[in-house]
């Protein structure tokens, strides 16, 4: 059953320039999808539409069979609980003046989710591999990787069915990146994951399906393994060819 359905969606910030052009996409329950494209291809814009932060000029987006309408307050509250997001830059996605406890508990407070918030925050911290007792500290006391774990804890604390990750590992160094990808892979067993990235390597490691976006259009989509083994569209072929490789020769010279 499809959780999210994007149907012939077009969008532009100004009337004469389209950022997204006739995009259709389906995220099934439990699916992991990699959305790949270069900077400016419309990945982040599509994410904004999926989050209800902007409305498409034409076409429809449905979540769990219901139309995604930012003006429908009751629907949005339920939707926010079920769809959460992890941002690219862990240095700007955490309010520097809030404690970790307060940051992670924000969705619980704002969405009026009942229960012991302190315990729920502690559980979320443990789920992302941090100590339960770091809640009293501030973001600047953590490293980039730890901050991204905190951001992931905030996203999973309301128990979403869909996790959207916007370049969530690109700002991290290589070893941290691998650990966060592992963490996301673990989480994707219990929720659907849309992983937006310009890094095909990470998508190949994490996502079952892949969608390639070029200049606001979907040029290729399918099983990650199949698409990467036999890319049909010239843009996909170029993207694959541009993945940096280290050969023994280059290293030794």
């Amino acid at each position: 059953m499809s959780l999210v359905r994007v149907d012939h969606v077009s969008f532009g910030y100004t009337a004469n320039r389209r950022i997204l052009d006739d995009v259709s996409l389906e995220i099934a329950q439990g699916d992991t999808i990699g959305l790949v494209g270069e900077s400016g291809s419309g990945k982040t814009t599509l994410l904004r539409l999926l989050l209800g932060l902007a409305r498409p000029d034409s076409g429809t987006i449905t979540f769990d069979g219901r139309p995604l309408d930012p003006r429908n307050g009751a629907f949005m509250r339920d939707f926010r609980r079920q769809a959460q997001v992890v941002y690219q830059d862990p240095y700007s996605s955490l309010d520097p003046r809030q404690t970790i406890q307060s940051i992670i508990a924000e969705p619980l407070r704002s969405l009026k989710i009942p229960g012991d918030h302190q315990k729920q925050v502690g559980d979320a911290l443990e789920a992302v591999g941090l100590d339960r007792d770091v809640g009293t500290r501030f973001p600047h006391q953590f490293s980039g990787g730890q901050r991204q774990r905190i951001a992931i804890a905030r996203a999973i604390v309301p128990g979403p069915r869909l996790l959207l990750a916007d370049e969530a590992v690109s700002a991290l160094d290589l070893t941290t990146r691998i650990r966060i990808v592992d963490l996301l892979a673990g989480l994707s067993k219990t929720m659907s994951l849309l992983f937006v990235s310009h890094d095909i390597g990470v998508v190949a490691a994490l996502c079952r399906r892949i969608v390639i976006l070029e200049k606001g259009r979907i040029v290729e989509a399918g099983d990650t393994a199949a698409v990467l083994a036999n890319p049909q569209h010239p843009y996909t072929q170029r993207l694959l060819a541009s993945v940096p490789r280290l050969t023994l020769n280059e290293v030794s010279s």
Partner: peptide
Amino acid sequence: YITAARTSG
């Protein structure tokens, strides 16, 4: 973190 606050409801 402002966008995050919005998507947190």
